[in-house]
């Protein structure tokens, strides 16, 4: 056992214990850590946004780089996003707060426009292609059987979400079959969720036992 003598490791340990103390009950130590986390996260976000986005993408080409590197025409093109970006500040000035709608409209319209064809291709067309039964599935009995089960599963699960008609007769049978597939899917997700949560806990214990206490190599 080689307990760390690094003061910063000890700080990390104290903060870890502070968050873990919530397991016992809500307490001032936990609340301190929680509020510290929120403030630091936002400060980190601001620093990175400046150095990784605002400075290289806007400030440097517009104000730092000379005309020999960035032409006047190109510099003027940066004025539009600058003005749109500054409109976000208007949110906090009641008389002109409506100006915040301009950058929001730009971002929303652009996002919606690029998303529609992309999602259509990735999540509808390609997924439908994957569902269709193709000649390739006859190559082996197991491939064929799993392809049929998958096809039935997709169709029945989709029908389960079809609420425009009462679930009676054939639709009832299909939607009940769909529930079976959905439950297996949710079960698989739950099983994996257990794995995820335990991994995060193990990660923290590895830090405490390895980096702090030196109990494991």
């Amino acid at each position: 056992m080689h307990v760390s003598t690094d003061i910063l490791t000890w700080v990390a340990v104290v903060l870890t214990v502070g968050i873990f103390s919530f397991l016992w009950k809500d307490n001032p130590f936990y609340k301190f850590c929680e509020h510290l986390f929120v403030g630091i996260s936002l400060g980190y976000f601001i620093s990175l946004t400046w150095y990784n986005a605002v400075y290289p993408d806007l400030f440097r080409p517009l104000f730092v780089q000379p005309l020999s590197e960035v032409s006047l025409g190109n510099k003027l093109l940066f004025i539009i996003p600058l003005l749109l970006g500054l409109c976000y500040f208007c949110r906090f000035i009641p008389r002109v707060s409506w100006l915040v709608r301009f950058p929001m409209a730009f971002v929303l319209g652009w996002g919606a426009g690029v998303t529609i064809p992309a999602v259509l291709q990735t999540s509808i067309i390609r997924q439908m292609q994957g569902t269709f039964l193709t000649p390739g599935i006859f190559a082996r009995w197991d491939v064929f059987l799993w392809a049929i089960i998958s096809f039935v599963g997709v169709v029945c699960s989709v029908l389960y979400f079809f609420f425009s008609r009462e679930h009676k007769g054939a639709l009832k049978v299909a939607s009940e079959t769909g529930i079976v597939f959905l439950m297996v899917g949710f079960g698989a997700s739950f099983g994996y969720t257990v794995m995820a949560r335990m991994s995060l806990l193990i990660g923290r214990f590895q830090f405490l036992l390895r980096d702090w206490l030196g109990l494991i190599q």
Binding site: Q127, G130, Y192, T193, M195, G203
Partner: peptide
């Protein structure tokens, strides 16, 4: 991916959109 979202990635594996998957710490 994190294990939480691993089960959701399987449709993309079946279509070949994803080439391989690492699920969680495992």
């Amino acid at each position: 991916v994190t294990a939480v979202s691993a089960a959701d990635a399987y449709p993309y594996l079946q279509t070949g959109q994803l080439t391989g998957l690492l699920a969680g710490m495992k």
